[in-house]
């Protein structure tokens, strides 16, 4: 056995002393199953949120700064003692926020609900969450906005939104879209996908919530989430490059520059952004010329063809780690293995 040393962040609330670092041979956080299924042992190892039980010492030692494996409690949650954080105060409150139980319409049938087999496999990806808190710990948006509902709870929300037995799909989506700390508070950073030990891919579930909200229910939220996405994708279709000067005003007008100007709320918020614009002009990041006349990519036609191709599909392609499909689609499996959507 090679020797490993672990540098562990210790904290004893009874000592009256602040947290300190201690070097050890071996130590444990809360743990139970030792098989990556109970979710008790979430910690940060060399800065990365993960389960301690399925972390190989040898691999962790390779990434360790100065040879010592650094073990800290998870982030975004208050530390109770040593490596134990208060998940009730953060994670479980957020889970409770998304109305985490099935709400079917009326009395249940005599037998089972008859549903599309793929829909069950689809939401099983969210069901695979073991509530270890790794994604909450790694979430950059939550660091900025502690009230953000966050990756785990929103993945849980998708589990009901995607469930054909639930009768409140639209209400759930409206609620999560209108909440300023809801689905549009995610910044697409992929951190949750990277750290999730069960391939739940929380960010993907958040993106699915957004698509359901916009494409399926046409929800135009008060947070301008919908407008912002529309402006983003319209600008790329038009120029191939993002026009930051147009992005903001277009976002406020559901993608239209003119409509943005006549909205009093938009005007107010745009005015509030003026200092940012001025800073941009001063630093030379934006010039009046580039702001007004945005250049197009040379092969912009290619971008347009991509848009056309994607939009011509009748169904949205929703790949999932619990692979479904015809037996002749065997090769599709390899695409979906990463737990990413196409």
């Amino acid at each position: 056995m090679p020797d490993y040393s672990l540098k562990i962040r210790r904290y004893n609330p009874e000592s009256g002393q602040p947290a300190y670092w201690q070097q050890f041979d071996v130590d444990l956080a809360g743990c139970s199953c030792q098989a990556a299924i109970c979710g008790s042992c979430g910690v940060r190892i060399n800065g990365m949120s993960r389960l301690a039980c399925n972390t190989k010492l040898g691999e962790a030692a390779e990434d360790a700064p100065n040879g010592a494996i650094v073990v800290e409690p998870m982030g975004n949650m208050p530390v109770l003692k040593d490596l134990i954080v208060d998940m009730d105060a953060v994670h479980w409150k957020k889970v409770q926020r998304v109305v985490p139980w099935l709400l079917p319409e009326g009395d249940p049938p005599d037998r089972e609900y008859i549903v599309d087999p793929e829909s069950m496999i689809d939401i099983t990806q969210s069901m695979a969450c073991i509530h270890c808190g790794a994604c909450v710990s790694a979430c950059l948006s939550m660091e900025v906005d502690p009230e953000f509902i966050g990756p785990a709870a929103l993945a849980k929300a998708y589990r009901f939104v995607g469930d054909p037995r639930d009768a409140f799909t639209e209400d759930r989506l409206l609620d999560l879209a209108e909440d300023p700390h809801g689905i549009y508070d995610c910044t697409h950073c992929f951190a949750c996908i990277e750290v999730c030990p069960k391939d739940v891919a929380p960010m993907n579930q958040i993106m699915r919530l957004r698509r359901r909200a916009t494409s399926d229910y046409g929800i135009k939220d008060g947070n301008n989430g919908y407008g912002h996405e529309k402006a983003f994708s319209d600008l790329i279709e038009k120029y191939g490059l993002l026009s930051e000067a147009q992005l903001l005003p277009k976002s406020y007008g559901d993608g239209s520059l003119i409509r943005a100007q006549v909205k009093p709320a938009a005007l107010k918020e745009l005015t509030a952004k003026l200092p940012t614009v001025i800073r941009g002009l001063r630093s030379g990041k934006v010039s009046p010329k580039t702001a007004l006349i945005h250049r197009k990519l040379k092969d912009q036609d290619q971008i347009r063809r991509m848009y056309k191709e994607v939009e011509s599909h009748e169904d949205r392609l929703e790949l999932n780690l619990y692979i479904v499909g015809d037996s002749d689609a065997e090769e599709e499996g390899t695409m979906a293995e990463g737990g990413q959507e196409g």
Partner: peptide, 12 residues
Amino acid sequence: HLGVTFHRNEQG
């Protein structure tokens, strides 16, 4: 009925 996502056959 409470929401367990049991595996379905082709008939749902």
